[in-house]
Structures are given as structure tokens and as C-alpha cells.
Simulated scan of single mutants.
Amino acid sequence: MSLAERGWIFAAALATFVAGSQLSPASALADPEDPPPADPAAQGSEDVLHNIVYRARVDGVSRGATITFAAEGNQTQTANPTMVPGRTFEANTVLPESATANMRVSIDWPYSANLTCEILVDDAVVAKAEDFIAPRVLPVKDDPDYGALTCEAPVSGIPNPAAPGGGLPPADPPPVEGAPVDGAAPASA
């Protein structure tokens, strides 16, 4: 290869490198105008999320089970599981302290069953309900909630086991020896 050919190859390679570098996007190094959002844990208590577990059980012969529950982001989720005696429906979500955890379990007419619902917030049972839905010959037109059971509980106010003292109020101090107990007079010696 001659010196001229090597020069042309070098020039072509250099031109390809320069053209390729012009096509790649450049990085922006400017400062943002808005400050980044603060840490959610450092903000108010409404941003603290809690784990929510919804459990439902339908014991009896029924069809058309519908389970509706509150979910993350102000959404309502609906499930139509096949419920047979002994089977438990379970759903997990997270909700902020300012929310209310609620669940509705219903079955279709004319079936009857024992409905059970349970809500757990951070592994603590905060609401539990049970009701027997009796069989009916005719549907109940003046009661739209016949055949349904609702559980509801606020997410706030639940003791936080991670907090100092387990989130529970302080215990009463132990009684002092010789002090009256429940308004009784001290024992004489």
C-alpha cells in the first residue's frame, strides 16, 4: 500500500469518527431550576405507606362472588374469584396513613353462605366481620346490600411496632408498696 492510499484511509477514518461523534447526543450539565423533591420519610405522616392485607372467605354454596377493595393510588380493585368452602381470597396493597382500608364481599342471589372478611394493617388485624346470608325465594329489591358484607378501618392510629415503645402508650407505673390500692385504706401493721 502506498503512502497516498494510507493517507486517504486515515482521512476517511478520521472523517467517520468526527461525523459519528456529531451524531451522538450531548450530556446536559445545567443546574435544574426546581429543587429535587424532599425525602418522603421526612415529609408529613400522610406519605408514610402501610402494608394492607385483605382476606375474604365464602363458606357455603354460592356463585358470583365479587370482592372489591381499596388499593394504592386511590384505586378500587375488583376480583371475581371462584370461592368454594375453605378457600381464602387474599390481596396485598399499600395505603397511606390518611386512607381508609375497606373491602366488600358479595355473592349472587339466590345463594346463601357465611361471608367473612378481615383487614390487616402492618400484620395487625384491625377489622374483622362475619355474616350469614340466608337463602331467599325472591331477590331483595329494597336492600341493595343484601348478600354483601363490608369491612372498613382507618389506616392511621395503628400502633407501629417499629416506633420506640412499639407505638403503644406508656404503661402505668408499678404500684408502690404500702400505698392504697384502688382507693382502699393502707393496711395497718
Rank of each mutant, 00 (worst) to 15 (best):
A4Q: 14
A4D: 13
E5M: 14
G7M: 14
A12S: 09
A19F: 06
S21P: 06
P25G: 06
P37H: 03
P40A: 06
S45W: 10
L49N: 12
H50Y: 13
N51C: 02
N51S: 15
V53W: 04
A56W: 09
R57M: 13
R63P: 00
G64P: 10
T76V: 13
V84P: 00
F89K: 03
F89R: 05
V94F: 12
L95T: 09
A99H: 13
N102F: 11
R104H: 05
S106D: 10
D108T: 10
L115P: 15
T116E: 07
E118A: 07
E118V: 06
I119Q: 02
V121D: 01
A124P: 06
A124M: 08
V126F: 05
K128A: 03
A129I: 03
A129K: 14
D131R: 15
F132M: 11
F132A: 09
V137C: 01
K141F: 06
D142C: 04
D145T: 12
Y146N: 07
C151H: 02
S156P: 02
I158A: 10
I158W: 07
P159T: 12
N160R: 14
P161N: 08
A163K: 03
G167D: 08
P170D: 11
P175L: 07
V176S: 11
G178M: 00
G178R: 11
V181W: 13
D182F: 14
G183R: 07
A185F: 11
